[in-house]
Design a protein around this nucleic acid. Structure first.
Lengths: 198, 198
DNA sequence: CGCGACGTTGATTTGCCTCAACGATTGTGG
DNA sequence: CCACAATCGTTGAGGCAAATCAACGTCGCG
């Protein structure tokens, strides 16, 4: 057992930024999430078992990625403090395995997806909260799709800079490249040009 | 008023494929959705007003698209009978306006997004149903992101063929190209090669 | 009928990838 | 504490997939 208290405290603060929570309700939350510390470089795997999980990042930084048929990694998202992530895998047919790796020593809370459903049954306001989050995430994904289809490598890098300035500082460059879908070499050249241009 | 009855009937059938619905519950549904017929080529706009809507397609075919800064259209999704679509726009900062156009004469049901929340309040099982749908959609979007970042134009076309064979027959080729993020010319060449290859 | 939308084909250009080699930094074990 | 390996970013050369530009045939529709 780790000192889960401070970790849960962050989750509570996160909730209370958008909705009030009673102590009683939060006790329930505690039974559904389990606190974990993950060392930099370690994986959170759910290989065989198909249980999907939701993860709240209390501190540190994670990356979620898949491996395509050519064995190449593709980063789906980075998650830092106060972000959610999940192992979303599977859309129906192709298992499309997802991996989650800690890029820094991190503190996280993990819940099975059906735990979230349980939680919502007891705290219905949580339902709309959760749906709102899913919708925001959907909108963001749409933007990313359009941008990956229509923008140049440099434009995508610009967007990333604007959108996730805090991530840049903490994540190795070649992973940013992977997220953007460009080669590390190309990203390096882009950065060079930009710095010269100023 | 149009003959909404048959349109609502399709929505009910759609629901009942995954969950039972009482007559009473469905009466509520009827108050929240409004039935519309849209002629081919017409737009469903929500320009000024920022109300987000959810749309159920009872018959016909729609496309949802944005226009980027260079004035180029990008198709986000096609929706045919028994699919949902929405005007998802906005992720927080960039308005990124979305348009929805009928590609065929279509029958649809429209609800404001907060109507859906109302509905869920009265039929809580609908909540998990809706969340599950959002999650499937998120997984699909992730796949599309990865595939747009890692696959060649031809591979993406193959995937599309497998995934949406019914759409191909009904939608002009250059729109498929737009969805896939390739130029119409390239798609034409790809199709030529494939047909030669068999 | 004639116009416009759509698809096809060719020629040229280009953005980005791949391959390869090389410093710099980190960290690991002797 | 130093040597060596591994990881990471940078730079160069060459190649390829797909975009762009342009012209043309066909079909459906007002």
């Amino acid at each position: 057992m780790i000192d889960a208290a401070s970790i849960f405290q962050k989750l509570r603060a996160f909730f209370e930024r958008s909705m009030p929570i009673t102590d009683e309700q939060f006790e329930l939350v505690k039974t559904l999430f389990s606190a974990r510390k993950v060392k930099k470089g370690h994986l959170l795997l759910h290989e065989g078992d198909m249980t999907k999980v939701d993860i709240f990042v209390a501190s540190g930084c994670l990356r979620t990625y898949t491996i395509d048929n050519n064995g190449k990694e593709h980063i789906i998202q980075f998650s830092i403090e106060n972000w959610w992530t999940g192992d979303l895998s599977v859309s129906g047919n192709a298992p499309a395995q997802c991996f989650i790796e800690a890029l820094e020593d991190s503190e996280i809370l993990v819940a099975e997806s059906n735990s979230i459903e349980k939680l919502i049954k007891f705290v219905p306001e949580m339902g709309s909260f959760y749906r709102a989050a899913l919708q925001r995430s959907a909108a963001a994904k749409n933007e990313r799709i359009v941008s990956s289809l229509s923008k140049t490598a440099e434009e995508r890098y610009d967007d990333f800079l604007k959108k996730y300035p805090s991530v840049i500082q903490r994540v190795p460059q070649h992973m940013i490249a992977s997220y953007l879908g460009i080669s590390p070499e190309t990203l390096s050249r882009i950065r060079k040009q930009r710095s010269r241009r100023r």
